[in-house]
């Protein structure tokens, strides 16, 4: 997966940086294999986005971020990209309103959920979440 595909709020680990005219600058700024990157926010038009690298905020265009190969941390997988299995909710990356909405469903940090055939089950019941919501829920695989 490349960095530009990672949803806002997620944390990832860098695997490799592909060749490009800005490769040296990316490496120098701290985007090296095994370093952690958090996607902080997008600009009003969605591109570029801000990333946190060693506590510094770095803006990258999506075309630039696409030269960076990353993978999710085991305890920080966005629900939108999780494959089938059993999970624990490890974090939410959103504001008050989202938290209210999600707690109405009974979901909290440390809730157990499972995914079967792409459907989400909570306490044995199937629940429906929009893609935007799924991007804001992070899971740890059990």
């Amino acid at each position: 997966m490349t960095l530009d595909k990672v949803p806002v709020g997620a944390k990832v680990k860098v695997i490799n940086i592909n060749n490009s005219p800005i490769k040296h600058r990316l490496l120098g700024i701290g985007i090296v294999p095994n370093s952690l990157i958090e996607v902080v926010r997008g600009s009003p038009l969605g591109d570029p986005r801000v990333y946190r690298v060693f506590n510094k905020l770095i803006s990258l265009r999506n075309s630039e971020a696409s030269s960076i190969e990353v993978e999710f941390l085991n305890d920080y997988i966005p629900l939108s990209l999780a494959s089938d299995g059993e999970y624990i909710i490890s974090a939410f990356s959103a504001g008050q309103q989202f938290l209210k909405k999600i707690s109405l469903l009974g979901l909290n940090v440390n809730s157990n959920i499972s995914i079967k055939n792409g459907e989400i089950y909570f306490k044995g019941k199937k629940i429906n979440l929009g893609h935007g919501m799924k991007e804001k829920i992070f899971l740890r695989r059990l």
Binding site: P21, I22, R25, K56, I58, S59, L60, R61, S63, E64
Partner: peptide, 11 residues
Amino acid sequence: GEDVPLVMELP
């Protein structure tokens, strides 16, 4: 036709 990069720090 080279792009002007935007690898930029927000201090």
